[in-house]
Amino acid sequence: MKKTHIAALILIVISIGVIISITSDFSSWETFATAQEAEGKEFHIVGELARKEDILYEPEKDPNYFAFYMTDKSGEERKVVFQGAKPQDFERSEEIVLTGKMEGEEFHASKILMKCPSKYINDELEVKAVAAEN
């Protein structure tokens, strides 16, 4: 067997090992309930802003505290706390992707990804108001 073959083989074995081990880095899509089962561990959760609850962001008191309520895919509603500024137009988000963990009854988000209505495509046609005289 040639040295190059041996080297290639070793590298392939190592990389298989690495790939198996990195899959443990992979996260999963959870709900608040399943995230609660592993409190303190970070997950991804998809949901919608619970619009009937208040969105709390008072930058004059603290520009790094932002809290809101989100309803996850199973319909459960929880308070979410984010250490940072409120993303502009948060109220208009259609879907929210959170990364973070459960801490007691609250979900502490480390990252918020908003899906806004047609972020790149807007199919609403803005039409100049037709004057009454026409």
Binding site: F26, S28, W29, H44
Partner: peptide, 8 residues
């Protein structure tokens, strides 16, 4: 469950 990208 579906896989998600690593948290970090």
């Amino acid at each position: 469950k579906d896989l998600a990208p690593p948290v970090d």
